Simulated assay, not measured.
Amino acid sequence: MKQKSIGIIAEWNPFHRGHEAMVQEVRARFDNAFIMAVMSGPFVQRGEPALFDSWTRARWAAERGVDAVFALPVLYALQSADHFASFGVKLLVSMGAKVISFGTESLDEDDLWEAASFSLTDTHQKAFHKSLKEGLSYARASYEAMKSHSPFLADELSKPNNLLGFRYAEAILRNHFPMEIYVVHRDMDHNISASETRKDLLLRGDGSLLPSRSAVEAESLMKSGHFTDFSRFEDACLLHARLLSEKELSETGLFTEGLEHKWFKEMGNTDYKTMLSAIKSKRYLYSRLKRLGAQLLLSGRGSSPFTAPPPPSYARLLALRREKSSALRNISLPVITSMARAMKEAGESTRLSLAMDIRAGDVQAWCQASPRFRDGRQEFYHSPVIVD
């Protein structure tokens, strides 16, 4: 009998004890299910490289109960929250997942379905666009539109995990996917955040918020310099911005409303953070600008593939629990275990997506704190990690 597949969309930057608790709850609820995750690889949605490499993060998840971890293509990972959620859901559905599970601060399944259903109505769309025309930011316009239906839901959707769960439910309804959602409520009294975990590691080399075995390894990685030095990434983004003309910026298709002119004007700043701060506005938030800079760096010159990523066409395996290897036969998409073979044999859209993942991996490797770990083309040298 075919196992039920439970999907998780994750970044695990890095995989901490809160993530472990969520996986354990999913396992308790769906005892015999195949738990598979699609995880952001070299880059994460916030617009920068992950702290640690993809295979290490994927292995930590597999060691703590996830059956298989697949790469979320960078073309999907470096998108706004609504598109990140939509592409992630589409990939999981294409792989055969019947349930998507995620954590929220407070909202449950019924709340999320209600909010998502209302967001797709004409009433919501009219209220949303009216607020935009009045000069409100995207987030504020969304809040005001939802508030016209439910002040409670509007307030609760200001919390990041509630909002992401809402985006997952919205993507399922918009595309008429036969997928259920299963909510795991975060322990807000003992909440662990990925940003707090990264801060502890970067400032003090302290991995105590990770599961014990991962914590020891994470602290060792920090000591050896095998982690992302974000100052190197920021310098790379600033340098790349200076090498492009206004016309070349416009030709990428990444800029709207003349933003490329402001970008070009401010690229002479002494550092990248100052440049983005000078461009930031009510309409263009810092987080959006960071993603734009990362997309620009990875795209190079010409039309950017981030403007219209291809639909899901493959599942690239990063880590697998050996006992669940037979479940790979039930994955609906071709499973990629060799980058070299895939780049030779795959179709054009798959090769385009994989080529961007290779480039993202090269940038992350270049940003490593120690020169010992800056070798390029790592995507070709790593096989999926098998966990016993």
Rank of each mutant, 00 (worst) to 15 (best):
E144A: 04
L249E: 07
A145E: 12
E248R: 14
T252F: 13
S212M: 10
N175L: 00
D155T: 06
S158L: 03
S208K: 03
D189P: 07
A139K: 14
T256L: 14
L210T: 15
G165P: 01
L164H: 05
S158R: 08
A215S: 02
A169V: 04
G207E: 10
P211F: 00
R140F: 05
S224I: 04
I172V: 02
M222R: 02
D206R: 10
L249K: 05
G205Q: 05
Y168F: 05
M222L: 10
P211R: 03
G205F: 07
R186N: 01
E219C: 09
L173Q: 03
L164T: 07
M146P: 08
L202P: 02
L157Y: 05
T197E: 09
L221S: 01
L163E: 10
E257L: 04
N161A: 01
L239T: 09
N175A: 09
F255G: 07
E156S: 04
H190R: 11
L164P: 03
P178F: 12
S193R: 03
D187N: 02
L201I: 09
S148H: 04
L209D: 13
L202F: 05
N161S: 00
G225A: 02
L136F: 14
R242L: 15
H240Y: 15
M222D: 03
K199D: 13
R174I: 06
V216W: 05
F152Y: 11
R213F: 09
E134V: 09
D187I: 04
N191P: 15
I181V: 03
L210M: 10
L244E: 15
G135T: 08
S214C: 08
I181Q: 01
T197M: 13
I192R: 10
R167Y: 10
L259P: 05
E234F: 12
E156G: 03
A139Q: 13
S195M: 08
K247W: 15
D229R: 03
I181P: 02
E257T: 09
M146S: 04
F233A: 06
E217Y: 08
S231C: 15
Y138T: 14
S148P: 04
R204H: 11
L163C: 10
S250A: 13
F152H: 01
H240L: 14
S224H: 10
L259R: 13
D187W: 04
E248M: 12
L259D: 04
R174L: 11
M179N: 03
F177A: 09
F152T: 08
D187R: 02
V184Y: 08
L254K: 12
A241G: 14
A236L: 10
T256A: 10
R242G: 11
R242E: 15
R174V: 12
S208R: 08
L254W: 15
L201E: 03
E134K: 05
D155I: 02
S142V: 11
S158V: 13
E246K: 14
V184D: 03
D155E: 05
K147N: 06
N162Y: 01
R198C: 13
A154G: 00
H185F: 03
L221Q: 00
S148M: 06
M222S: 00
D187G: 01
R204Q: 14
L202A: 07
R242P: 15
R198D: 05
A139N: 13
S142D: 11
L238K: 15
G165V: 05
